[in-house]
């Protein structure tokens, strides 16, 4: 059975602090949503595959999210990790419509 994609209204843009992230649990899926200083909004897995660091508590460095535990870096578009042998994060499509942030999860 193909996975069902669901588009969910998550929060307002004002709920996302500039240059930082916030943690959500959409259904059973933990997601970290960020708003970069350049205005880009994106969403990735809530936890780092290395030791489970809460990524929303991390920082943004250029195009990357930096885990607060051991500074593993993940690309905001692809979810790819800068460390060899660490699996990529799942990224989730995000839309901002009229100040409302929507995320699409499966």
């Amino acid at each position: 059975m193909p996975a069902t994609l669901t588009r969910i209204p998550l929060c307002t843009l004002d709920d996302l602090p500039l240059g930082l992230g916030r943690a959500f649990k959409v259904g059973d899926t933990p997601i970290a949503v960020f708003q970069s200083r350049g205005g880009k909004v994106f969403a990735v897995d809530g936890f780092c595959p290395h030791k489970g660091g809460p990524l929303a508590d991390g920082m943004i460095a250029g195009d990357q999210v930096v885990c607060p535990y051991h500074a593993f870096r993940f690309h905001s578009d692809t979810g790819a990790c800068d460390q060899p042998g660490v699996c990529a994060l799942t990224t989730y499509p995000v839309e901002v419509v009229g100040g409302q942030v929507y995320v699409t999860v499966s």
Binding site: I8, D15, L16, L18, R22, F24
Partner: peptide
């Protein structure tokens, strides 16, 4: 000092189908 500074994970329910 900023939105969500002292807030933990926010749970958003999936819409009932």
């Amino acid at each position: 000092a900023f939105a969500g500074q002292f807030e933990d994970v926010k749970t958003v329910p999936l819409p009932m189908v």
